[in-house]
């Protein structure tokens, strides 16, 4: 009797329900295991230089994946990020180098354009606009996200080709190249940008009202609507967010390669979606998060880096990544069925 009363009076526990994080933690476990295996087989893998190298290689994918996580959390998908990235990169390069004759003119150090910040602003602006258009098509015209962004995948690539007349825009000043190639201490600049945005997105999804709403809309759109959430506005916003990251990444990639290419980012959408899914974010919405996405993207980067160090053919690497995607989701289903 007394124990019963005591049990009832005890404050409800705040114990975390780990079942919500199984997928993300599983991905972390796999990452750790793979790193240990590589470290044992190939000691060069664990050098600081190599680890930062891995991070730099995945930073563009990582930025896109941060945006993609928002979209996938709402049950959506964005296939257009690679194409939008190429278009944004070209716009950034063109703005930086100046308007006319931009395709033939210009070698390093001869900038006559609108300056670095205008270039970054233009790239991000193109990304935001592209995302907004797609978001409007999804929420107002009610066309499924897969179809809208499949259209975007083709159309933005076409726009990139049209804009550049089929030619890359290359060779920038050091100021421009710094963002993709520079280092602050031992840390590559794109890595700092990637991790900063990942941290910001982590905080937004976890601690803000907006973040809650993203999970709610993805978890059950009808219940979210009946709870007074503006489902359309939230859905629209996540496509603007992926657009932002596509724009920013477009600039960073052109800076890193010292060239804005029309074929930049081809196939990136699939790698990015793979990273998000391996990281435990459910394609059915409402489950997952940025922590898992960072792990998932790192997993892809580490695999590719380690296998390269071990002289495994890149063709094999693609097969391995493909198998891991299916295996990760299979493991997830297995755990969920148990519950």
């Amino acid at each position: 009797m007394t124990s019963q009363a005591a049990a009832k009076a005890a404050p409800p526990a705040r114990k975390i329900d780990w079942s919500a994080y199984v997928s993300q933690l599983g991905a972390l476990g796999v990452l750790v295991v793979i790193c240990v295996i590589f470290a044992v087989i190939e000691p060069a893998f664990v050098s600081t230089r190599n680890l930062f190298n891995v991070l730099r290689q995945v930073s563009i994918y990582g930025l896109l994946a941060v945006g993609m996580t928002f979209v996938i959390l709402t049950r959506g998908i964005d296939l257009s990020v690679g194409s939008l990235l190429a278009l944004s990169g070209l716009v950034a390069a063109a703005v930086y180098k100046g308007g006319t004759g931009l395709l033939t003119a210009g070698t390093a150090g001869q900038a006559e354009g609108y300056g670095l910040w205008a270039a970054i602003g233009a790239a991000v602006g193109v990304g935001l606009l592209g995302g907004l258009l797609q978001g409007l098509a999804i929420t107002q015209l009610k066309v499924p996200p897969f179809i809208v962004t499949l259209g975007g995948l083709t159309a933005f690539r076409g726009a990139a080709l049209l804009f550049s007349g089929g030619q890359p825009i290359s060779t920038f000043t050091d100021e421009y190249k710094f963002w993709g190639q520079g280092m602050i201490g031992p840390v590559p600049v794109p890595v700092i940008i990637f991790l900063s945005f990942a941290a910001l997105a982590f905080i937004v999804l976890r601690y803000t009202r907006y973040g809650r709403h993203v999970y709610a809309v993805g978890g059950n759109p009808e219940a979210a609507r009946l709870s007074g959430l503006n489902v359309n506005a939230i859905t629209l916003s996540v496509y603007v967010i992926t657009g932002f990251f596509a724009g920013l990444s477009g600039f960073l990639l052109s800076s890193r390669l010292n060239s804005a290419e029309q074929v930049a980012g081809v196939g990136y959408e699939l790698t990015v979606i793979a990273g998000v899914v391996i990281g435990g974010t459910s394609l059915f919405g409402g489950e997952g998060g940025i922590f898992g996405t960072v792990i998932g993207i790192l997993l892809i980067g580490v695999l590719s880096n380690g296998l390269t160090l071990m002289n495994v053919s890149p063709y094999w690497q693609q097969i391995v990544v493909g198998l891991i995607i299916v295996f990760a989701v299979y493991l997830d289903q297995l755990v969920k069925r148990r519950q």
Partner: peptide, 23 residues
């Protein structure tokens, strides 16, 4: 189907409509 977001915690479900006051 309409009242709850099953994949989310009791806490998150309970404050979903009232989140503005807690923000």
């Amino acid at each position: 189907a309409q009242g709850l977001i099953l994949s989310l915690a009791v806490r998150v479900n309970m404050t979903l409509t009232n989140l503005g006051a807690l923000t």
